[in-house]
Simulated assay, not measured.
Amino acid sequence: MLFAHDTEVALVATAAMINADLSDVAALDAFLDPWGWTGARAHDDAELAAVQAACVRMREFWNADEDAAVELANALLREGGALPQLLRHDGWDYHLHATPPDASLDVRMTVETAMAMIDVIRLQQLDRLRICAADDCDAVLVDLSKNRSRRFCEGGCGNRGNVAAYRARRAARQPG
C-alpha cells in the first residue's frame, strides 16, 4: 500500500466525485451512499451547488505542479477550518478527520481531499494523479498500481482503446 487506507479512499472518492454526473440532489445522494460519507447533510440544491463548485476546485490538483498543489491544499484546509484529529467509527480503525461532523458536505469533502493531497505531496507522488489517456475523455484517475501503469479511467476507455488498437493492427496486416 502506497498511502494510508483513508488517504487512498479519499483520493479514489475524490476522482470518482469529479468524474460523476452530479446533476441533481438525487444523483449526489446516489453517489454518496456507497462511499459512506458521514456528517451533516442538507439534501438541497444549495448543497449540490457547493459540492459541484468543490469538484471544480479539487480537479485543479490533477493539473497542478507541486507548488500549486501545496497552495491549493493549504487554502482548502484554511477555508475549511481544518483541525485534524484521529477518530475511529463505523468499522474503520483510527483515521484522520479534520472537520466537525456538522461542517457542510462540501467543506468536509474539500478538507478530506486536501488532507489526502498532503500525503501525495509529501511522498512526491503527484504524478499518480492523471487525466484519462483516451483522446475523447477528460476523466481524472488515481494510479495506485505498483508499476505506475494505469492510463485510463474506469469508464471503459482502456477497453475501447485496446479494441481500436487491435483492429488497427489487424487491418494493417491484411492485404489491401
Rank of each mutant, 00 (worst) to 15 (best):
S23L: 06
A30T: 11
A20F: 01
F61T: 06
E60W: 07
A49K: 01
G39D: 04
W37C: 07
G36N: 10
D29H: 09
D21A: 14
A20P: 03
Q52D: 01
V56F: 10
I18T: 12
C55R: 15
S23R: 09
M58I: 15
A40S: 15
M17H: 01
A20G: 07
A26G: 08
D24Y: 02
C55M: 13
C55G: 12
A15W: 08
F31T: 00
A54G: 08
A30D: 14
E47T: 06
A50D: 15
L22F: 03
L48C: 10
D33K: 14
D21P: 02
N63Y: 10
A27E: 07
D45R: 15
M58E: 11
R59Q: 11
V51W: 01
L28W: 01
A16L: 11
D29W: 00
R41V: 00
W62H: 09
A20Y: 03
H43Q: 14
A53V: 11
V25E: 07
A16M: 06
W35A: 05
H43F: 15
G39Q: 05
V51M: 04
D24H: 03
A30W: 06
A16D: 13
A42S: 15
A40M: 12
Q52A: 10
C55Q: 15
T14I: 08
E47V: 07
A20R: 03
L28V: 00
W62S: 09
D21F: 04
E66V: 12
D44L: 13
L48P: 11
D65A: 06
A64N: 09
R59M: 06
L48S: 07
A30Q: 13
S23P: 04
A64P: 06
L32W: 05
E60L: 08
H43E: 08
N63T: 14
L28P: 04
W35R: 14
L48Y: 07
F31D: 04
R41N: 04
V51N: 02
L28N: 00
A49V: 02
F61D: 05
A49G: 05
A49E: 09
A30N: 09
E47G: 03
C55W: 02
V25Y: 02
N19E: 02
F61K: 05
W37F: 11
M17Y: 02
A20C: 00
C55L: 13
D44Y: 13
L48H: 08
L28E: 02
R59E: 14
G39R: 03
E60T: 09
E47N: 05
A30F: 05
A40I: 01
I18C: 10
A40E: 13
D21C: 06
I18R: 10
A53I: 11
D29F: 02
R59D: 08
D24S: 00
A54V: 05
G39T: 02
A54E: 00
P34A: 10
H43S: 13
C55Y: 05
A46R: 15
D29Y: 01
L48Q: 06
T38S: 12
E60K: 12
A42I: 02
W37V: 14
A46F: 10
I18K: 11
A16N: 11
A49H: 03
M58Y: 10
A27S: 15
L28D: 03
D65L: 10
E66Y: 04
R41T: 00
D67E: 15
F31A: 01
W37H: 12
D44R: 09
A64Y: 08
M17L: 15
L32D: 10
A46T: 14
D65Y: 06
T14Q: 11
E47F: 01
